[in-house]
Amino acid sequence: MKITLRIWRQHHQDQPGAMEAYEVDEISPDMSFLEVLDLLNEDLTLNGGEPVAFDHDCREGICGMCSLVINGLAHGPEALTTTCQLYMRHFEDGQVIDVEPWRSTAFPVIRDLVVDRSALDRIIEAGGYVSAPTGAAADANAVTVPKKDADRAFDAAACIGCGACVAACPNGSASLFLGAKITHLGSLPQGQPERDERALAMVEQHDAEGFGGCTQIGECTAVCPAGIPLDMISQLNHDVLSGLKHQSGQ
């Protein structure tokens, strides 16, 4: 296959960027999208160009590091798929493919397709945990957890923290990321003591990072590789409101 890639090139955070076109030949349909970028970079390296910087690590869809907007869609056209698991057989020979970084004010571009997603870490830091110091735990079976609660918690905990929800959201909101963590911990008995404080603190940090609000459009769930459902955002809204109610009752 032969593909034309139009890629966002930006040397540095403080410099302007632009789309640049590259032709890549001899692409096998069994190649992953990132392997095509590898091929392009090999070519650029040997022929005096600057290789394209992009984030990637596990290349099996779980680490959440890869982050490309392909033809306007975060992680490309396949549902429930990260960029690293997107194969070229889903494209056509001769196609022009636009590749851009996640765009959000809270995710500044570091270089080319690499962005800074540390805002998501700071949201977790604000309260996305259960305070359980090492050694203080009771026996694992001391508290039973109904299977449906455990399953719901797992569905939420499957979030890989890639930030595609933000990249796809017309409001630049990280509510799906936020909702997933609040639902994960809020569904389990271990997460109850800090449930109110967690929701309030995480929402405050989310807004302080400059993410927008959620208007329930649902673009985030369409691109989410982990299949986090929209109702987890509603869970976040619920927990914030009940947290405020409990707080004012004190």
Partner: peptide, 22 residues
């Protein structure tokens, strides 16, 4: 054994049976 206790206390959603046990 203490690792499992620790992980459960942190909210790690291990697979459970219908009775709620691990």
């Amino acid at each position: 054994a203490a690792i499992i206790d620790q992980a459960v206390a942190q909210g790690v959603p291990f697979a459970r049976e219908y009775g709620g046990l691990l």
